[in-house]
Write a protein that binds this DNA or RNA. Sequence first.
DNA 1: CGCACGTGGTTTTTT
DNA 2: ACCACGTGCG
Length: 758
Amino acid sequence: MNSSLLSGLNPEQRAAVELPAQSALILAGAGSGKTRVLTTRIAYLISTGAVSPHGILAVTFTNKAAKEMVTRLSAMLPINTRGMWIGTFHGLCNRMLRAHHREANLPQTFQILDSGDQLSAIKRLMKAMNVDDEKFPPREVQSFISSSKEQGLRANEVEAYDPYTRRKVEIFAEYDAQCQREGVVDFSELLLRCYELLSRNAALREHYQERFKHILVDEFQDTNKLQYQWLKLLAGHSPSPQSSGETTSHSTKPASGPVTGYPASGRGGDRERHSSTSALFAVGDDDQSIYAFRGANVGNMQELTRDFQVENVIKLEQNYRSHGNILEAANVLISNNRNRLGKNLWTAENGGEQLRVYEAATDVDEAAFIVDEIKQLKSEGINLREIALLYRSNAQSRVLEHALVSAGLSYRVYGGLRFFERQEIKHALAYLRLMENTDDDNALLRIINFPTRGIGARSIEQLQEAAKMNSTTLWDAAARAGGKVSAFVALIESLRSATRELPLPEIMDHVLEHSGLIAHYQNETGVKKREAEERLENLNELVNAAALFVHENEDDSLTSFLTHASLEAGEHQAGDQDDALHLMTVHSAKGLEFHTVFITGLEEGLFPHQNSQREDGGLDEERRLMYVAITRARRRLYLSFAQSRMLHGQVSYGMASSFLRELPEGLLHWLTPRFVARKSFDSFLPDAASAPAPSFGGGAPSAHSSPWRIGQRVFHQKFGEGVITGVEGGGADARVQVNFKRAGSKWLALEYAKLTAV
DNA sequence: CGCACGTGGTTTTTT
DNA sequence: ACCACGTGCG
């Protein structure tokens, strides 16, 4: 049995799988069989009897990855994976909090706020607190709260030295109090609350530490501080309250945060214990860390080796995915990054093709080129689903889509609005949430007047005042009100009693019908008709989703379904089996692979993105992003860029991405005349022979005779090379806007600035 | 109360 | 160019 598990593994993979029960860090390059090693390790541990399925905790970031792991595992072992703790950080924390909701001071039916829900909760709160949303943009407050929690900090633990931050901390505290009143938790709260539960409740902590002998983590480079703390706690490396020397800076203040009510047995009452230490098996790739912008801390990899005394880090460096040239390009590019753990991917494959580079005049031309190439590939027998079009930002998909539609090529755009995030679905779910938990003000506000039932802003304001006055929830206030509001209360009550005994899909059906949602969309006419029809379809699909959920899950309660909807807003889309191109951002391509990959929009300022240049280490993260993009391709890779592109409704002019320059010429095959490209970055010398700069778009007031016109490439002593993106005034006052490759965009007075046309 | 129009802001994304 | 949100009018 073991031998069949291990067959086909290379020595490093095999060593990783067969490690003794100790903590380990597996540095797994792109395409090196990371998931395979992880799942085989689990299968190995179970089949050798080292641990029972019960003793395994396996954590991933996405539901997709978790599912993949379960699927592979059940293929390897004849075991029931249902009882196993395999899931996402959020999913597992949710599971623990449900199981111990009382200890965690939560109602059994606590609801989960997705980021949209969270934002509206914050807006509502800020209004109630009379906070100026000009000075404190709700989105900023939201990210302040989330990132604080992701650092493991409660409001009273955040260091605030200025009035501005202090105010945000106040909002943070009030926000947590509001959530607690309403019985809801946001995403980061799931993690923090679970962490606190375990750290304060010794009995529970020891129970789980004892249980989980092996903890396995996928994509470890993406863990944030809180997630790592959580892992350490479960693994028995608890920063027990007495022990010092922890790297985390917990305030010494007592944790009497807004979310109080923990039994006193928690804090400080911990006895000295020698709880068993679990083995933490972490798999990751620092070169693929692309989520630092949202709190991921690559440093966790080094910390892990210190905290867990990991003696040898196993590197998986053989790539089974790409041809040599593609891999070499990736290697060369990433070698420009500092602070790498160090790793060099190799392949037994031959070099394969060169990378195909294309310089287009405009974004539209770029798309047209891509369409032509795809048609060619298709005629050569490559399936569309084996081709991916990658871009840095979502806005770039439009032009590509347009070209694909015209050409009649089918495609799927990944990312964007997901099923459970659609407006009509959120409305429908809000009814269910309110039925489950009447304290959920968010849900109440969403539907109290949708479909419209004559309860306007005025009435709602009155409700909110009444609720505040009596410090109750909106529901309680509504229950005391009369007229239309009481009709609404009666509606919810009747929905609740009518569906009490029904199975989930029928509950759904009943609520859709009797809430008036169906009728509301059926009554839409005119321009909104099409949209309404689609919404009706989605609502119908929601009933199907409920049926499917009941079919697939043991726990088919309403609470469980609502949790599923929040935590797995996921790709509930049909058409997966169709042969269609994949369009997605580079971020969402991580973990995938394709025969052919087009990396589009390789322009300075776009990829690497302008905003990244300001942040510390921002360029390195962009480079890792490029590394991820390159390593998605198995056989063929296209790199394209455009001299001009429509951006934010304006034609903007960019230069070829510096990442292109970082790739060895020998690996590249230019499909467009190379000198055009060379002009854009190789030499700053004015060249009489070089073609005149393109003069796209325009509306530029400058005369044609002037050398300073939009699109002109220029060189500046201090700022280096750039492109003119704007011209203003004339004569002595003339100013030009130049988008510099290094220094960003600047306005320069022509009289003083020493500009040279390139 | 509900609709029409205006304004601002647009990197990346999972849970 | 486009979308989400907020204000002002019927």
